[in-house]
Design a protein around this nucleic acid. Structure first.
Lengths: 332, 332
DNA sequence: CTGTTAGCGCGTTCAA
DNA sequence: TTGAACGCGCTAACAG
């Protein structure tokens, strides 16, 4: 029985195998310049002692931690959960660990956490929708390697979905159904995601005279969507474009609670296609953002960076318009 | 400009401040035995150099990483997301970091990940619903400090919800509504969560002759619930008890798609009260498990362990029966 | 092919 | 109060 309950070190293995520390290190790390017989002896000793090299010590000497940081604005948001899930599994497959940090939808936290976690990881995957562009630009320099999700900054590797085009597709869908008075339930004012949607709306309205899209300040979650119901109904619009599925679900629920029929009285479209979208009644029409895939790609980008490979151009996935039951012809 | 782009070390700060390494270390760590004037000089030098001690080096010498590992069976499951969210935020408030690992619902992974992540953290919070009790018992010894979620093992600190009692409350609710033929959509056979529910059912049936609860093998997600719809309808039961809300939502959706009315033709109850439960149509009757709170408590337990405090007895939160729209009087 | 030595960047004795 | 020296556990030069 080893005297130290703390853990067995490489020295213990060396002693048991009757070799030097370096030989143990080499043998265990698969260095080919070791006598096969010794390798076996070392292996046996290590196994007998249940030895594994200290990751912390290795990190210090190797200069890498086999860990990446992921910053998300809210672990409670299904979209980021999906991204994290895809990322986490992909990283695990490459023997990397994931440190998560929840910035609680705070710009300050996004900035602070990125810096704080960077030191104990080999890179950071940043989902920082709120951070002003200028700050982001100045932040990423000290963070490299970095992969941005749903944002871009110079030549920094990034993955994201084409919010603009997707929203355009949703608008076109509503227009085809005859809707001319539409409301947009806006997310956080200064977020890039919101800006992209606003651009898409402006573009669409320009190209389709006679169609009117009014903006209603809202938010990003259930409560925000439910809270906007009055304003939506009062607006006289025949269709509502929600910032995301959460907002759409909140709205759907509140509107139905008031006895209005969806889509007969009001059409509703969401954004993201979270897993729950197909289980509302009626099922939610939305734009399917492949969030888990986004996570997988984010890891793959990070992996390349870690291996010194070329980052590659920013990847943009195309969300797919997914028509379900909450949209229908505009009421006459 | 420092010659090394790699990073500024304590030596750089010492040089700039004109003191020794030890003084820098002491000054920056708030050791009171340092001349205030020197402290200031060191602080200035550190600030000027934008210096922060390497977490990895500190981890090696201090023997702690300021990081805990959290193992969850599926990052895509709302319940574990909520636990992780509560845990993550609570840990962050105490300046701890969180390493997450997704065991992909695999027993092997649960075991392997626990061991692998432990070495690079100060403790592990384990959500391992699948791991056989014997294996869990033998595993936790080498993992300490450990906090178990929804499981127990000897005197190991644990937090969990009282599944048994909560299911009892759900059964009582259905019974009061006149339901006598009930089906239970079972989760994973060998999971403890499922076992607890089975016990509650057996107990209830014993105490209420004339009430019949049939078990239908199912699963833990949407698809499983939807897939069980035929079996449920064919069973002639007037109420269905789903393993969790995901299953309930899948069932609800599939049942309605076949033109059956809920709760008129069939009552459905879920379990967990995930955020989406109140947004189905009709809103889901379920047992509210305070998952985020569970996460907070799990951290608080871990925090005590890390500080050498007494673990305290296993904490058991009582889920609250939340009656909404999917349950109603049994059809005559 | 193997052992010895020198760090990785820090915190912390031990003297002064 | 401060500095020099040692060690955390490991890998990588550098000899042999």
């Amino acid at each position: 029985m080893p005297r130290s309950p703390k853990g067995v070190t490489i020295a213990d293995v060396a002693a048991r195998a009757g070799v030097s520390l370096s030989t143990v290190s080499r043998a265990l790390n698969g260095n080919p310049t070791v006598d096969p017989a010794l390798v076996e002896r070392v292996r046996d000793a290590a196994a007998a002692l249940d030895y594994t090299a200290s990751p912390v010590a290795r990190s210090l000497v190797l200069g890498r931690t086999q860990t990446v940081a992921v910053i998300v604005p809210d672990l409670g948001n299904p979209t980021f959960q999906a991204i994290l899930r895809g990322l986490s599994r992909a990283a695990a497959a490459d023997d990397y660990h994931v440190l998560v940090a929840d910035s609680a939808e705070s710009v300050d936290e996004e900035r602070v956490l990125a810096g704080a976690t960077r030191r104990r990881t080999d890179g950071v995957i940043l989902c920082a929708p709120r951070l002003p562009q200028a700050e982001l630009d100045s932040l990423v320099g000290g963070l490299r390697p970095v992969v941005l999700v749903n944002r871009t900054s110079g030549a920094v590797p990034a993955v994201g979905a084409d919010y603009r085009r997707a929203l355009g597709a949703e608008l076109a869908h509503l227009h085809e159904l005859g809707h001319r008075r539409i409301v947009y339930l806006a997310g956080v004012e200064l977020s890039v995601a919101n800006a992209a949607r606003l651009e898409a709306i402006a573009e669409f309205v320009d190209a389709h005279p006679g169609t009117e899209v009014a903006e209603i300040p809202c938010g990003v979650d259930f409560e925000a969507g439910a809270g906007a119901a009055q304003a939506v109904l009062a607006s006289g619009a025949t269709a509502a474009l929600a910032f995301n599925d959460l907002v759409a679900m909140g709205l759907l629920s509140a509107v139905q609670a008031q006895g209005r029929r969806v889509p007969d009285d009001l059409s509703i479209v969401g954004f993201d296609d979270i897993p729950f979208a197909r289980y509302t009644t009626p099922p939610l029409t939305t734009a399917a953002v492949p969030a888990e895939e986004l996570g997988t790609h984010a890891w793959s980008r990070m992996r390349d960076l870690l291996h010194g490979a070329e980052p590659g151009d920013p990847l943009t996935l195309q969300p797919e318009l997914t028509v379900r039951g909450t949209t229908g012809p505009a009421p006459a």
